[in-house]
Design a protein around this nucleic acid. Structure first.
Lengths: 328, 328
DNA sequence: TTGAAAGCGATACCAG
DNA sequence: CTGGTATCGCTTTCAA
C-alpha cells in the first residue's frame, strides 16, 4: 500500500497533475466530466493530499503553536479549550508546548516554534516575563500578560476584578479585609492588588500593609502557609480575606479550618479565577470569574484574523465578574 | 529579512548545498576548515533549517499526535504531561487533539491526523469504543483502553484497583459496601466493578445489585445524583461506598453532606484516580492512585521505540495503589 | 572531501 | 478548460 500521490491520480485519470490540483483546491474551473473522473479516481485509490508537500509550497502549515506555563493548571486548560474549539473548526491543528513554569523550556520552545512550521503563536507566558525573539515573522498573540512589543494581546481587567472582590467584602463585612496575593512581579497579581487598594480607598479605609500577605507561589500550599503566617501575626483572624486566586483561597480555607475559624461566619473569603474545584468545595467558594474559554477563543480569533486579513495587532480586554457562593 | 535558505548559506560559504547539509546533519565527514566556514556563515545569517522541506524529504516530521477525550479532565492532563515530558526531550513536538468526548470529532481527528504529518499517535479514546481506521501506516499506542487490533497499549490493572479499594473498605467496616460506578460499557469501569465483586466474594459477601448505582456520566453531577438515588431507595446509608472515580466520589460526598450523613463516621468512601482535588477536600478523599504521569511517559517511550527500532507493538500494565486519607 | 543533480509531493504560472 | 513545468528547501546518491 504505497502512498498514492497526486501523480498517480493524474495518471489514472488521464490528466495532468495540475488539473488534479485544481479540483483538489477548487482553484480553477474544471469541466464537470473531468472533475468527476478525477474525483472517482481519488475515491478509488484513497488518495489523500500530503500536507507537508503542500506546506512547502504554500508556506502555510495550518497549525498554530500554543505555549502554556502549566497544563496541569485548569485555568490555562480552559483557555486552551477555547483556542482549540475555535481553531479546529477552521482546519487548524495546534501544537501544544508545556513550559512547566520553566524559563529555559520556554525560551527553547519559543525559538523552536518560531522557526518551525507554525503559522501563528499564542503565548501564555510563564511567571517571570520573558522576551520574545525579535526575529519573529509570524503573528503572535499574548494572553493574560502585559508585554512590551508590538504583539496582540487579550487581557482581563485585573484591577477591576480586585476591586469588585474587595468591595463585595467591604459591603458585607464593613472592615479589615486582608489580601492574600501571589508574587507581585506577575502583572495580574499586581493589578489585583491595585484594585484592592482602590476599593479600600473608595470606601475610606486605610491600606494596612500588615493585612497583606504575599505568598511565594500562588498555589494551594502557598496560600495555606501564607495564611498561617498571617494568622500568626494577627491577634485575631481578619473579618475577611481576598485571595488573589482560587488555589490560594483553597489553601487558606484549609488553614482556617485547621485553626478552627469558621467560614464565612468568622472570616469570609473570596477567591479569583472560578476554577471548577471552587464550586465543589463545602462551603463553596465565592470568587471572581474570568471568561477563560472566551479568552482562548478570542486569542485564536485574533490570530486567525491577522493571518487572513493581515489585520493589525490589537488588544482585547475582558471584564471579570463576581460569583457569589457560600464563603463570602 | 527574507528567509535564508541552505542555498544562501552554500553560496556565501562557497560550497555546494550538499556540503552544508552534511555539516547540518553530521552525516558525512567534512574538512574542519570548510565546516568552520559554513558554521560561521550559518551563525552570521541566522540560518535555520526549514523543517517542512526536511520532512518532505525524510518522511519524518518529528511530531506526534495525541488524541484525548477531554483536556479539562485532570486525569488525562497528567498523562499528557508525561507524554510531553518524554517526547519534548527527544526533539518531538506534540499535536494535541481534544475530542471533547465527541465521537465525530474523534473520528475526524483520527483520519486527519493519520493522513497528516505525524510520525506516531497516542490515542486516549472517548467513552464509547471507536475503531481506528485500518489503513494506518504509523505506529499507534492506546492508553487506558482495551482495544482489538494490533496496537500497543498501556493499561492499569483496574480489576486489581477495584479489589484493593473494596477490600480496604471491607476490612475497615466489615459490611455492605456500595458501588457507585460509571457506565459499564467503558472498560475501566467494568473492570473496577469486577474487582469489587471479587473482593466481596473473597470475603464471603454476597454481591447485592441494589447496592450498586450506575451513573449516567462519571462526573461530579453524575455521582451526586447517583448517590441521592441510592440513598432514596435504601432505608439507611450504606456503611461505605466505593466510587469508581474521584469526581463521582466528590459528588457523592456533597450528597452525603446535604443529607447530613457524616463522613467517614456513618459512611466511609473511597474514590479512584487520585486527582488533585481529592487531597484538598475536607475531609480528604481516600482513593486509588493511578500512575498517570508514568503512563504517559511509558506510552511515549513505546511509541518512540517503535519508531526507532521498529519494535513490535506490545502492552504494558501498571499497578494502582491505595492512598489512605480521611474519608475511609 | 566535495559537488551536481534527482526527487520528495504538492502549487501555480504560463501557454495553448 | 487543460497541460507542461518551474519551484518550494532540503536530503542523498553517485561521481569526481
Amino acid at each position: 500500500m504505497a502512498k498514492v500521490t497526486i501523480k498517480d491520480v493524474a495518471k489514472q485519470a488521464h490528466v495532468a497533475v495540475s488539473t488534479v490540483s485544481y479540483v483538489l483546491n477548487n482553484s480553477k474551473s474544471v469541466k464537470p466530466e473531468t472533475r468527476e473522473r478525477i474525483l472517482k479516481v481519488i475515491e478509488e485509490t484513497g488518495y489523500f493530499p500530503n500536507h507537508v508537500a503542500r506546506s512547502l509550497k504554500t508556506k502555510k502549515t495550518q497549525t498554530m503553536g500554543v505555549i502554556v506555563p502549566d497544563i496541569g493548571n485548569i485555568f490555562f486548560v480552559e483557555i486552551i479549550e477555547g483556542i482549540e474549539a475555535y481553531l479546529s473548526q477552521r482546519g487548524y491543528s495546534v501544537i501544544l508546548c508545556n513550559t512547566n513554569e520553566n524559563q529555559e523550556k520556554e525560551r527553547n520552545y519559543l525559538s523552536v516554534l518560531l522557526n518551525k512550521d507554525i503559522d501563528g503563536l499564542i503565548f501564555l507566558a510563564t511567571s517571570k516575563n520573558p522576551e520574545i525573539p525579535q526575529n519573529t515573522t509570524i503573528p503572535v498573540v499574548i494572553v493574560d500578560r502585559k508585554f512590551s512589543g508590538n504583539y496582540s494581546s487579550v487581557l482581563v481587567d485585573n484591577v477591576l476584578g480586585g476591586q469588585i472582590a474587595t468591595e463585595h467584602l467591604i459591603e458585607r463585612n464593613h472592615e479589615n479585609v486582608a489580601l492574600l496575593t501571589g508574587p507581585l512581579t506577575i502583572s495580574p497579581y499586581f493589578d489585583r492588588m491595585m484594585g484592592y487598594r482602590q476599593a479600600l480607598e473608595k470606601h475610606g479605609f486605610e491600606y494596612l500593609p500588615f493585612l497583606v500577605e504575599q505568598c511565594g507561589t500562588a498555589t494551594y500550599d502557598g496560600g495555606y502557609q501564607g495564611l498561617h503566617r498571617l494568622l500568626d501575626r494577627l491577634s485575631e483572624p481578619p473579618k475577611s480575606i481576598f485571595a488573589a486566586n482560587d488555589m490560594m483561597a483553597l489553601g487558606a480555607m484549609r488553614a482556617l479550618f485547621e485553626r478552627g475559624v469558621s467560614i464565612p461566619k468568622q472570616t469570609a473569603i473570596v477567591g479569583y479565577d472560578d476554577i471548577p474545584t471552587a464550586s465543589i468545595m463545602t462551603p463553596a467558594l465565592t470568587t471572581i470569574r474570568q471568561p477563560k474559554f472566551e479568552m482562548g477563543q478570542k486569542a485564536a480569533e485574533m490570530l486567525f484574523n491577522e493571518l487572513q486579513n493581515s489585520a493589525d495587532s490589537q488588544s482585547y480586554l475582558f471584564q471579570p465578574s463576581l460569583i457569589v457562593r457560600e464563603t463570602g
